[in-house]
């Protein structure tokens, strides 16, 4: 990733919620092909996340298996030690491998569905029964591409699902980090 991309990423990480809301509203829907097979450095803008150790993270995206079809992809989070958005992402390893967890489904929320909050976004839905029970199924993220011309920079908006309520938690910024081999992700 070039310096310009990193600079745009850092700028987004420093913006306030009002500014991010404006950028999010102008965002466009990411293509699956722009996500699948890559991990992205992520930064939560909610300041409490610094204290609880989840300010920084990684998100990976994988093609869904054949039973799902082409309308959906999958993904997971990777634990990263807290730090500034300018520093290297310090990934936490477990048993010699990056600590990957919290799988999710990624798709466009059907029109009129209770999850259909932002039509220009992809829904990252952690409520996926086929995944282990420990996944944080109460989370719902919405993801947009910041500008049509930059395929590496994304802005997300995270909610907690409380019954039918959706409570806003934080914005997060994603920057393309590296390619991953799907065969090695969970293996």
């Amino acid at each position: 990733m070039g310096l310009i991309g990193k600079s745009d990423f850092v700028q987004l990480c420093l913006k306030n919620d009002d500014e991010l809301a404006d950028i999010f509203a102008r965002g466009t829907t990411p293509e699956f092909a722009e996500l699948v097979g890559y991990e992205f450095d992520g930064f939560n803008t909610m300041d409490l996340t610094q204290l609880i150790g989840i300010r920084r993270f990684r998100k990976g995206f994988l093609a869904a298996d054949e039973t799902v079809g082409s309308q959906e992809i999958g993904g997971y989070n990777v634990t990263v030690r807290p730090g500034p958005p300018t520093a290297e992402w310090d990934i936490v390893y477990k048993k010699g491998k990056p600590h990957r967890h919290s799988p999710y489904r990624v798709y466009r929320a059907p029109a009129g569905d209770k999850e259909d909050k932002y039509p220009q976004s992809l829904l990252i839905n952690y409520d996926c029964p086929r995944n282990p029970v420990w996944n944080p199924g109460f989370l719902r993220d919405y993801l947009v591409k910041v500008t049509p011309t930059n395929p590496d920079l994304f802005l997300g908006k995270a909610y907690v699902a409380l019954g039918s309520l959706r409570v806003y938690v934080s914005y997060f910024v994603l920057l393309r980090a590296e390619k991953v081999d799907p065969a090695t992700v969970w293996g």
Binding site: V10, L14, N16, D47, Q50, G83, P85
Partner: peptide, 10 residues
Amino acid sequence: QAMARLLGKP
């Protein structure tokens, strides 16, 4: 707030 984020501080 921006300074805190850039320094990785609460």
